[in-house]
Design a protein around this nucleic acid. Structure first.
Length: 887
DNA sequence: GCTCTGCGCAGAGGA
């Protein structure tokens, strides 16, 4: 039987004599999660007893194949020879992390913290792996090499490598594999699967195997291995995959294969007479358990929030490549380290800051892990409700689009809604993402009836799940590392409030008709380190930002333009282009970047020198903050970073962009929506923008004149969020009404909708996160505006909940209906807000009043608030809102 | 018990 639950009590290790000889035992008490079982004592025998050093009360424990017996009248459990003990099974450890932990626990930590920079051996290794995958999928070797090298042009260009020489080197490595593969294929029936994504629900391990051959994991290594035996950490890596494969097939492979391409030089062949680059090794049950114990050490360390010292294992620091980094990091952070320390520690407050944010980012990582858990924990029905997956798909086709690239098509239920969008990374499966055949893929197309996914290998497409990614979390950590450990003292003095921002230079007129905007441009241009531009709704912050960018370029600065979302980056670029400047390189993915900006999209494929130069010499590079954390952009330097919608960025998120530049300008509005953060009790909720603007008001400018809303519409927001400072830019703006719109006849509207701000209580009732009666009233209201001549394109409907959005959307197919969060950044002539809730405003979504600020400031000429009076009267803020809306 | 965008997927290697 299996038992799983939190540890409520942990004892001491004892050594006892058994019929099999001397053995250690360690007793823990676990409160089982499922069933009505009382807390149960579980005895962990033999090597599992080492967990005594790692287990704390509160940690979750899973013991498989435990045996029940009665001892002194009490039923208790013991591990058996088949048992595995897994600490915090929900914490998904990467296979590569187990690998580095085995080398040295501190290397695991350092890799996580600093990331791995762009270097040639790694790029070459990646290339050989890609060619290997292509070979397995039947592609011609020369074609593959040529294509893959061309694909990596930027990396090779930035590293100053000649593509012909690189191709030669890759060819040497790949030829050895090809010869061996052909030999194998002639003699036996081989079944190969390349690039297998594996996730284990039992062992809390995830990773991607290079290949699986007849159920045996195959790991390719391009590095040198001069000894005849496989490297230990390579075996560990392959054994991890064996563990996950075994879980799925209910039988563990007893072998692993490692392929060392460098071993097949002519000299070696002559020396050993051995043609094969492949080495098989046996994977015993004992080895699998060793791997799980290592994985447990990582999970326990993360649970405790400990930092590995290196003493946990017996690696020798003098041979370690990371020794210098290790010593510097421990020196800067005052950490204990086996390698010793060098340098002076950062001040206490920086250390405290680092610790706080490190913990907060790790909490986000655990939130991502919870998403993974949902992959297998939920039933199909729950999954359908959760809308993270599309289930019950009917496979309709598969075609090979290029060697080893497949396009899978399936029919979906027209009413099935999900958060899956085109361009998303997904797990495509034949029914269950971890128990049945599954492939990582990308959504190519998605409409009402059909979904198209591209994958490396074909399968019958029956289900598509969102694939959670730790990528951004990893990048936040490196941004934190770069900012605090590698940041200049001047920059840090500023971040920690020890020095006020400085400004120097003359005051010029850049924008003649708006004093605040002109002030903002001056402030940005004169900033020696930072300038902050506070732009409430409709105040022309994007225009101002574009002017700032243009003036920076004019005087010879190289500029990074960044924001959290692709949409914001594209908008800012558009404004820049509107001002007549288009010498911009847009870094990003095809699916993320808006179609009309594709002509500026940076092409990574081609000639290395050309590609690298285009990037290095671009006066303006535009990318999301997540992209700024990519290896390619981390290599770039800028004079100044201009970050839009900075109020939506966490502090480490902001660093992703600002780390790359000498100076920075943050543009945003902290009175609109804050960063999206998964962990509730997190430091990440506040933005750097807000903290700096509060600390250094003199380094900021408030854009106080808005060009969007009629006076009546903007009043509430101005009073509640901007101390009444926000005002219409011109009398024309102040007096805006529907009558100004061509073809609109306001007198055709029902009387209760004729004012610029109106209120309506449809007497509905909240059902889940919807309110059907209210949705109906919203639809009727919108219809009234359409009947009065308002174009569908000029109307927007906003609701807090996604469920209510789809409820309304069904009734109004031709009108833009979206959540408040997704509406941020855009505006409409007419906006109808569906408050949805009834009785009270207790849901956490109503707690942050800034969400309402966004919702109420999208309308230019007419705003209708639709909601339950009782709910709106139940809290002072909403009561003021109601009073204003009623007029 | 709510909102949700990113990402060149994860891993590639060096004595």
């Amino acid at each position: 039987m299996n038992v799983r639950g939190p540890v409520v009590d942990a004892g001491e290790v004892r050594s006892v004599n058994t019929s099999y000889g001397q053995s250690d035992l360690f007793e823990v008490t676990v409160r089982p999660e499922r069933g009505a079982m009382e807390p149960t004592r579980v005895t962990l025998w033999g090597k599992w007893a080492e967990l005594a050093d790692w287990i704390d009360e509160g940690m979750e424990l899973l013991v498989t194949d435990a045996e029940a017996d009665e001892y002194r009248g009490e039923v208790q459990l013991s591990t058996t020879g088949d048992s595995f003990v897994v600490v915090e099974p929900d914490f998904l450890v990467d296979v590569t992390d187990v690998r580095s932990w085995v080398q040295c626990p501190r290397m695991y930590y350092l890799n996580k913290l600093g990331g791995i920079p762009l270097n040639y051996p790694v790029v070459k290794g990646t290339l050989v792996h890609e060619v290997f995958g292509d070979l397995l999928r039947g592609r011609d070797i020369e074609e593959s090499i040529e294509d893959r090298v061309e694909e990596r042009a930027v990396d090779l260009g930035l590293l100053g490598r000649d593509p012909t020489e690189v191709a030669d080197e890759v060819r040497k490595n790949a030829a050895a594999i090809e010869g061996w593969l052909n030999q194998g294929l002639l003699t036996e029936e081989d079944e190969w699967r390349s690039e297998q994504t594996l996730v284990s629900e039992t062992f809390g391990i995830k990773g991607r195997a290079d290949a699986v051959r007849r159920g045996i994991p195959v790991e390719l290594k391009t590095g040198k291995n001069t000894r005849s035996e496989p490297r230990f950490q390579d075996k560990v890596q392959a054994a991890c995959y064996a563990l996950v494969l075994g879980e799925r097939e209910a039988e563990y492979p007893d072998t692993g294969t490692l392929i060392y391409t460098k071993n097949t030089t002519l000299e070696r062949i002559e020396e050993s007479g051995d043609l094969s680059p492949a080495k098989d090794f046996s994977v015993s049950g004992g080895f699998l358990k060793y791997v799980v114990r290592q994985r447990n050490q990582i999970a326990a360390t993360e649970f405790r929030g400990d930092v590995p010292t290196g003493y946990e294992a017996d690696a020798k620091c003098e041979y370690c490549f990371e020794q210098d980094t290790c010593m510097v990091v421990s020196g800067r952070l005052g950490q204990e380290s086996k390698a010793g320390t060098v340098g002076t520690p950062v001040p206490d407050e920086e250390r405290a800051y680092f610790d706080t944010y490190y913990t907060a980012v790790e909490a986000e990582r655990r939130a991502v892990h919870r998403e993974y858990r949902k992959l297998w924990e939920q039933t199909a029905e729950e999954r359908a409700d959760d809308d993270r997956a599309l289930i019950g798909l009917e496979p309709t086709g598969r075609e090979e689009i290029s060697a080893g690239r497949w396009r899978l098509t399936a029919r979906k239920q027209p009413e099935a809604v999900s958060k899956i969008r085109e361009g998303n990374l997904v797990l495509a499966s034949e029914g269950h993402p971890t128990r049945e055949r599954a492939e990582l893929g990308r959504v190519e197309r998605l409409d009402g009836e059909e979904i198209v996914v591209t994958t490396d290998e074909p399968l019958a497409l029956r289900r598509v799940d969102v694939y959670p990614s730790e990528l951004t979390v990893d990048r936040l950590l490196t941004a934190l590392h770069d900012a605090i450990l590698k940041g200049s003292p001047e920059r840090k003095d500023l971040l920690f409030g020890r020095r006020a921002p400085e400004f120097a230079g003359s005051h010029e007129t850049y924008i003649g008709n708006n004093e605040a905007q002109n002030e903002a441009v001056n402030l940005a241009l004169n900033a020696e380190d930072v300038a902050l531009v506070h732009g409430p709704p409709g105040t022309g912050k994007t225009y101002t930002l574009a002017t700032i960018l243009r003036e920076f370029v004019e005087r010879g600065d190289r500029v990074l333009l960044s924001a959290f979302t692709n949409r914001a980056v594209d908008n800012a670029m558009e404004a820049l282009i509107d001002q007549g400047f288009d010498d911009v390189v847009r870094v990003g993915s095809e699916s993320g970047v808006r179609d009309d900006m594709h002509e500026y999209l940076f092409e990574k494929r081609g000639d290395p020198v050309e590609r690298a130069n285009e990037l290095r010499e671009a006066p303006v590079v535009a990318a999301t903050t997540a992209s700024c954390g990519s290896r390619m952009l981390r290599e770039q330097e800028f004079d100044v970073a201009v970050v839009d919608e900075a109020g939506q960025l966490t502090e480490p998120g902001t660093f992703l962009a600002t780390n790359l530049a000498e100076r920075f300008v943050l543009v945003g509005d902290h009175e609109q929506l804050p960063p999206v953060v998964q962990a509730d009790e997190s430091e990440l909720h506040g933005s750097l923008f807000q903290r700096l603007i509060e600390r250094y008001p003199d380094a900021s400018v408030l854009l106080d004149r808005q060009y969007r809303m009629a006076q009546r519409i903007q009043w509430f927001s101005s009073q509640e969020f901007y101390d009444g400072k926000l005002r219409p830019a011109t009398p024309e703006v102040a007096g805006r009404s529907l009558a100004d719109l061509r073809g609109v006849d306001p007198s055709a509207l029902p009387a209760h909708l004729r004012d610029r701000v109106t209120y309506l209580d449809p007497d509905g009732r909240q059902v889940g996160n919807t309110n059907p009666t209210e949705a109906e009233a919203v639809a009727e209201t919108v219809q009234s505006f359409l009947d009065a001549g308002v174009a569908p394109d000029d109307v927007g409907v906003i609701a807090p909940f996604r469920a209510q959005v789809s409820e309304i959307s069904r009734r109004l197919p031709e009108v833009a209906v979206d959540t408040v969060d997704r509406f941020q950044g855009s505006a409409k002539e007419v906006v109808v807000l569906s408050v949805t809730t009834t009785g009270d405003v207790e849901s956490p979504i109503f707690e942050d009043h800034r969400r309402m600020n966004v919702a109420l400031t999208r309308a230019k000429r007419a705003l209708v608030v639709v909601g339950d009076e009782a709910a709106l009267s139940s809290e002072p803020f909403y009561e003021r809102l109601l009073r204003w809306a009623r007029g």
